[in-house]
Design a protein around this nucleic acid. Structure first.
Lengths: 124, 124
DNA sequence: TCTTTCGTGTCATAAGTTCTGACATGAAAG
DNA sequence: CTTTCATGTCAGAACTTATGACACGAAAGA
C-alpha cells in the first residue's frame, strides 16, 4: 500500500545513524552511491538523508558483496524491483514553509486519509 | 511487549529531523527538555539523538500547550505513564540488523495513529 | 499599574558532523 | 606485471548542533 511505501521513503536519517544501522563506513556508503545502488535525499545544506528503504538497500548491497555479487549485477537486479524516489522531508521544510505544507497535503492524499482521533497513548 | 518499547526507544534522529517531524523550533525542543518533558539520548559528540518515543512525547507536549496545559501538569502526567530510557545505537547493545528490523516494524505500526491536525505526524 | 514568570526568538561562539576530492593500498582480475 | 576494485585516510570547507545570554510580548500576580 501507498502508506507503507511512503513511510519507508521518508528521508530522515543522517549518515551517522545509517552507519550504525548498517555497520558500514561512510566511505562504503558513499561509494555504493557512486555505483548507483542507493540514492539518498539531501537536505538544504547538501547533507545526505536516508530513508528506511535506503538502509535496506544498503544492507542488501552488503549481503550481495559478501556473497560475491558485483555492483553491476545488483544494479540491474534492483532496477527491476525498486524505483520509488525517497521523499525529502527536511529540505523542503527548511527551504520553504509553504512547500512543506503542500508536501504534507500531498502525503496525506497519497496515504489515503484515514479517520483518526485515536490517541497514541492507548497503543503504547 | 518489550520489543515494541525497544524499537520505539532507538535513538536515531537528529535535531533537524525532529524539527521537521514536529514542526517545532530547536529552541522549543530544547526548552521542553529543560522542563524534563523529553530526555533525548546523546551521541559521542554530545549531539542529541531522538527516538520515536521522544518525537511522540514532543507532539504530546505541543498539543498540551495548545490546549492550555502547563509543563508541571504534563510532567506529572507523563510520570505516571512510565517510560523506558532511550536506547543509544552507538552503544551497540543491539545488533544493527535487529535494530533495523525493530525500527521498521515500529514505523509501520505507528502509521495511522495520529490525529490529522498535523498531517505529517501520522506517517511516522 | 508594576513586577514576575513563561515560552520563544535570536545572537554569538565553539565544537561536532558531513561533504568532496585526492592519494594510497591489499586483493583480485587480466 | 598491470589494472581494477573496494576501502581507508586526510584535508579544507561548509553545515549542524550545543550552550549561554539578552530580549520581549503575553499572562499572572501583587
Amino acid at each position: 500500500m501507498a502508506e507503507k511505501q511512503l513511510r519507508r521513503s521518508l528521508a530522515i536519517l543522517p549518515m551517522s545513524t545509517v552507519m550504525a544501522l548498517t555497520d558500514l563506513s561512510a566511505r562504503q556508503i558513499r561509494y555504493y552511491e557512486t555505483q548507483a545502488l542507493v540514492h539518498p535525499a539531501r537536505n538544504e545544506g547538501n547533507r545526505r538523508r536516508y530513508s528506511l528503504n535506503d538502509v535496506d538497500r544498503l544492507l542488501e548491497v552488503k549481503d550481495g558483496l559478501a556473497s560475491g555479487m558485483d555492483f553491476a549485477t545488483m544494479r540491474h537486479l534492483y532496477a527491476k524491483t525498486h524505483q520509488v524516489e525517497s521523499t525529502q522531508l527536511e529540505s523542503k521544510r527548511l527551504s520553504d514553509e509553504r512547500a512543506r505544507h503542500l508536501l504534507e497535503a500531498e502525503m496525506q492524499q497519497l496515504a489515503g486519509m484515514r479517520p483518526p482521533q485515536s490517541g497514541l497513548q492507548q497503543h503504547l
